[in-house]
Write a protein that binds this DNA or RNA. Structure first.
Length: 678
RNA sequence: GGCAGGAUAGCUCAGUGGUAGAGCAGAGGACUCAUAAGCCUUUGGUCGGCGGUUCAAAUCCGCCUCCUGCUACCA
């Protein structure tokens, strides 16, 4: 029997669970349920990730304390998870005494190993909010290219990286006030000291090959940078014991939350923490998304190694969720909260659908609404549940045959497939497992067809035969329910209720039930009604736009764009006058073959005045010729910028998030090249 | 441009040396126990392209094209 500790990434306590999160929690829950069904000792450990400035800001916005805020969020998270039959052995919080204690232990180990250094850095301080500002809470003008309203760490315009203190005219997004530069001592972990160890460990088989390659090529090919691990107070988190006034950065204490939550579980179950985190006999499996590989494949193992804890046996990394082939979108209503889904659809649908899509690969996973309905209706209702539904009622009075009848080898074959299905689950190849299971279902239905219990029923002399055929059908159904139990715990339970035989072990699929009672058949699963999917999406869409409902005439626009990029700090008319916008005609437009986003434009400002501009609009305007002749608006007095493919002498103005969604601005007809835009 | 992952039937994908597969969708049929489920039959593919290794290549090797993700140029 293996001892297996399993975690999912800790959801951040700053927002509700949505169906994208659920990919991970369902993937993990299925794996844990599978391990338990196989008779292994497995525990599923999770917690809310509760620290950091974002939490403080959200709490203030609600007018409550951070503690109240995270308590409420934790409750909401756990309610959502429970609604999807996600069953944790312990659900904790990073804001716990257990976590503080473990943080202290790991911290001491890093100190003792000589890996912690102090550096004085300049950081912006918001005087009104009385807090140092993380990079993303500062916006200002890029010191390199003078683009306004850029984030605090790197310029979205020219790509330059800098510290927030270097920004020109910085503004705090918290108070809208101008922050001042203050010096502060930060603590850094010199993770580079473990470079060789990490090089070995990341290639040791604990990671999927794609991930091992990524980490190697992207981070480990050069010295690892020191990791800034502290934040000066006030900061919602734990104060560093040997560095008063400084707090551990949220990403330091978040993974340690796995340990803290384990400790709580151990205390409740009288187990030893060290049996799980310091024992070669216990496995540790982390399930995470591809966005946080960095922390789990470098920092986290480095911390564990230094402090003498067990290293992760495996880090299972999955991709993101798309909806109908596109990124989830609030305005399209495909950014669906878990609680909203549960109002409209059965959680079993999503559990099964994700299972049919998940493999050990890091590929993104698409939720296609038509395929979703087709899979559930065809596989689960049409094939699996139908087996019970078309046989159970014929033997409700008599029960199952006393001896398992001849079935042409169907039961034995399905029993023999158990190992292959189990192996697929073990390797997180759920799509393969589902395929193997449905192959079995595809063999069971023809058996019923050929033996036509509805005909046997008409002849009283064939009562025994009728009972036999239905005994076969119900046993085949039960096998499927057992194999599907990790994915569909409710179906397994319903199967147990129908046949008076609860599913407790994977090996239950090896032995047929005989001579037991059969209860009255009850519907086990409704077919998916596409109307419910549409209603769910519609509700999500409405939620996204509730803020704009004042008039019944004006169109309802989403606030997505504004939220993604808040309005810049106020400027004077003189500031605006510095920007010389001109109407220009596109005289020539050519593709830049080596660039993925750039088109080379020659703009005419009237007369002989020309500008060569490289514009990053290729994906939206893939045929440059279509641009020739049209009028655009350009920034005519922008400092020229040398680029890989030539010098860009200005820029054309456009809106949109990027990619295919870029929209060039056009003047109304009548405008002439060279005219200034006031 | 760099790195990674892909390209097989209309769709989603199996298939790592031995005559191209499944499910769904499409077409036809028989049945009617079952949630308009299920069963039988059937249409459909120069397995991205070119070359090589081999008795034999979807599969191994090389080159190329295209797609996706990250990253850079950029907005």
């Amino acid at each position: 029997m293996r001892s297996i500790l399993v975690t999912s990434a800790l959801p951040y306590a700053n927002g509700p669970i949505h169906i994208g999160h659920l990919v991970e929690y369902l993937q993990t829950d299925i794996w844990v349920r599978f391990q338990k069904l196989r008779g292994n000792r497995a525990i599923y450990i999770c917690a809310d990730d509760t620290h950091g400035t974002s939490i403080t800001i959200s709490a203030r916005a609600q007018g409550c304390s951070e503690e109240e805020f995270i308590a409420e969020m934790s409750e909401a998270h756990q309610r959502d998870f429970a609604g999807f039959d996600i069953e944790f052995d312990n659900y904790g919080s990073t804001h716990s005494q257990e976590n503080r204690a473990h943080c202290t232990t790991l911290w001491k180990a890093l100190r003792d190993a000589g890996m912690v250094v102090e550096k004085e850095i300049e950081q912006l301080f918001d005087v009104e909010a009385e807090t140092f500002l993380a990079d993303r809470f500062v916006r200002g003008t890029c010191p390199n290219c003078n683009s306004t309203n850029q984030p605090g760490d790197n310029c979205g315009n020219c790509g330059a990286t800098y510290s927030p203190a270097e920004l020109i005219d910085p503004v705090s997004t918290l108070s809208k006030s101008r922050p001042e530069i203050r010096k502060a001592v930060h603590l850094f972990v010199q993770i580079e000291q473990l470079h060789d160890f990490l090089e070995d460990w990341t290639q040791s088989g604990a990671l999927q090959t794609e991930s091992a390659n990524y980490v190697k090529n992207y981070f480990l090919h050069e010295p690892l940078q020191d990791w800034d691990i502290s934040r000066p107070g006030p900061y919602f988190g734990f104060e560093i014991p040997d560095s008063p006034g400084n707090y551990w950065y949220v990403w330091f204490d978040a993974p340690i939350g796995y340990m803290a939550s384990t400790t709580q579980w151990c205390q409740a179950n009288k187990e030893s923490f060290d049996d799980w985190w310091r024992s070669p006999d216990a496995e540790i499996h982390h399930f995470i998304g591809k966005d946080i590989q960095y922390f789990h494949t470098l920092f986290w193992p480095a911390m564990l190694k230094t402090a003498g804890f067990s290293l992760p046996t495996k880090v299972h990394i999955h991709g993101f969720l798309t909806f109908d082939g596109e990124k989830m979108s609030k305005s399209k209503g495909t950014f669906i909260r878990a609680s909203n889904y549960l109002k409209h659809l059965d959680p079993a649908y999503l559990r099964y659908y994700y299972a049919t899509k998940l493999s050990h690969k890091i590929d993104d996973l698409d939720l296609n609404r038509e395929e979703f309905a087709a899979r559930i209706n065809s596989d689960l209702v049409g094939k699996v549940v139908n087996l019970a539904s078309r046989t159970a009622k014929f033997v409700a009075g008599t029960g199952l045959s006393a001896e398992y009848p001849e079935d042409g080898g169907l039961f034995a074959e399905a029993a023999a497939q158990g190992d292959a299905i189990a192996e697929a689950y073990e390797h997180c190849d759920y799509s393969r497992a589902m395929r193997l299971i449905m192959e079995l279902a595809d063999k069971a239905n023809p058996y019923i067809e050929q033996n036509a219990p509805w005909e046997l029923r008409k002849d009283p002399a064939k009562g025994k035969q009728l009972q036999d055929v239905c005994s076969v059908g119900l046993n085949l159904f039960r096998q499927l329910a057992i194999y599907l139990a990790p994915v569909l715990p409710q179906l397994a339970k319903q199967s147990g209720d129908l046949l008076d035989a609860p599913v407790v072990s994977w090996d239950d699929a090896k032995t047929p039930l005989t001579g037991t009672a059969v209860n009255k058949f009850k519907h086990m699963m409704q077919r998916v009604d596409p109307k419910n999917i549409e209603a769910m999406i519609e509700e999500s869409r409405e939620e996204a736009s509730t803020a704009h409902r004042d008039t019944d005439v004006s169109p309802v626009d989403s606030d997505e764009a504004l939220k993604a990029e808040p309005i810049a700090p106020e400027i004077t008319i003189d500031d605006f006058a510095k920007v010389d916008l001109r109407v220009a005609r596109v005289l020539a437009a050519e593709d830049v073959p080596d660039a993925r986003k750039l088109i080379k434009l020659t703009l005419g400002l009237g007369g002989e005045e020309r500008r060569t501009v490289f514009a990053g609009i290729k994906q939206a305007y893939d045929d440059p010729k279509q641009l020739v002749g049209r009028l655009v608006v350009c920034v005519a007095n922008l400092a020229p910028r040398k680029m890989k493919f030539g010098t860009s002498e200005g820029m054309v103005v456009a809106s949109g998030p990027g990619g295919k969604e870029i929209f060039l601005l056009s003047p109304d007809s009548g405008a002439q090249p060279g005219q200034r835009v006031h």
